[in-house]
């Protein structure tokens, strides 16, 4: 999975059917310290992530389709979690 931050939404009416009625979030991908790494992905939201939140992106098709109960379809990137806390300085927070 990848760390990302929700920075916007993408509105699309003419699109692949698997994307219908799904929210598309514009997400900056982040490095381990939580800083934008210059790239971004448009992801389907399944956890109700809000703008500005740090999230977990799943960027692999088979599992993405599994999450939306589909066998086929051009879906690859899904927001699967909302991050509460990042500790990359070695401290362990349970």
């Amino acid at each position: 999975m990848k760390l990302a931050r929700v920075v916007g939404t993408v509105v699309s009416t003419i699109q692949a059917e698997i994307l219908d009625d799904r929210k598309l979030l514009l997400c900056d991908t982040l490095d381990a310290a939580g800083q934008p790494d210059g790239n971004y992905l448009i992801a389907v939201d399944v956890v109700g992530a809000g703008a500005g939140e740090t999230v977990l992106l799943l960027d692999e098709g088979t599992s993405a389709r599994q999450i939306v109960d589909r066998v086929t379809g051009p879906l690859r990137t899904v927001v699967v979690g909302i991050v509460d806390e990042l500790s990359d300085d070695g401290t362990w927070t349970s």
């Binding site: 929700v6 920075v7 993408v10 509105v11 699309s12």
Partner: peptide
């Protein structure tokens, strides 16, 4: 690569 949608709008969060 495959186009999977026509974008009507991109609403960027103003940071």
């Amino acid at each position: 690569h495959a186009v999977v949608g026509i974008v009507d709008a991109v609403e960027e969060l103003s940071q």
